[in-house]
Design a protein around this nucleic acid. Structure first.
Ligand SMILES: [Zn+2]
Ligand SMILES: [Zn+2]
Ligand SMILES: [Zn+2]
Ligand SMILES: [Zn+2]
Lengths: 144, 144
DNA sequence: GTTGACCCTGTAGCGGCTACAGGGTGTGTC
DNA sequence: GACACACCCTGTAGCCGCTACAGGGTCAAC
């Protein structure tokens, strides 16, 4: 399998595959006589694994850790579970933060009803006014 | 005002201030006899503006566009409003995607009840198994 | 024999910082 | 005056996860 074929099969860009090899996430394949990379089924499996992980927004460093368990099936999987828990916590924290952000943007958006001169725009005023710890639409109940 | 004082007043890192100057977001201040940057109140205001925008996760390029309206109060503010709308749409799209991600991670997490050998771990199985378009916990009803 | 699709390596860029290295300056204490 | 220490300066490189070249080689079809 040439790199373009693997890319198509795995729904991944060619350059991404080379990148994964470079950072040591995907094992370097054999080479054909012309120097082209020649992939086997194992590479497709591994790439699919990586793709599933990435779809779950798991960092590549963590994907590498998960792959170590794939390579060593006799190990205990406690770390795997912990990793998913951590990932879930990260996603939930980001969700909280984004929900607050949404509210803040809605509040900000309501400041300018009808477009007019910038001097009168409530949005710009809201962003301009509070220099110090004054109340503002963006710094308040926002987590962190 | 020296850079460290400005940093403290605006709750921003010193290096971030220099970075903003380098990319042309914050005007270069006057210099004291010793070459130190000497900031005026205007810089604190501008930095506060940037900070409010960043708290709303507005990209620096968009912050620059907003600052142009601050500098030209006679302009029409329609673009400002559109920018906030776009930002809001972006946040909502990310929210949707993250909510799905949360569900997927929860589903994945439930695959391994009790930590055991990696060979039996349902999480690893779920990530390993589907190579092609098979159903998997991470690729399905997920947006994009 | 020439077009075009593919492959190779290596390097640089994105955003938004962050972290040095290697130096200069200003203030306080002994 | 000598030293420590905090702060300032410039410039460069690193983070993440790709993405996009530049400048070349290879292969099959027409
Ligand atoms: Zn407006
Ligand atoms: Zn604010
Ligand atoms: Zn498990
Ligand atoms: Zn999947």
């Amino acid at each position: 399998m040439k790199i373009g074929e693997l890319a198509k099969a795995a729904h991944v860009e060619v350059e991404t595959i080379r990148y994964y090899e470079r950072i040591g996430l995907l094992p370097a394949p054999a080479r054909s006589h012309n120097g082209y990379r020649a992939y086997a089924g194992m590479h497709l499996e591994r790439l699919a694994f990586i793709r599933h992980c990435r779809a779950l927004d798991i960092a590549l460093a963590d994907v590498a850790r998960l792959l170590r368990f794939v390579d060593d099936p006799s190990a205990e999987c406690g770390e795997v579970d912990a990793l998913i828990d951590t990932q879930l916590a990260r996603v939930r924290a980001r969700l909280d933060s984004l929900r607050t952000l949404e509210d803040q943007l809605v509040a900000l958006r309501s400041q300018c009803g009808a477009p007019d001169r910038a001097a009168q725009c409530g949005i710009l005023h809201e962003l301009e006014a509070p220099t110090l710890g004054d109340a503002c639409v963006c710094h308040g109940e926002r987590p962190q």
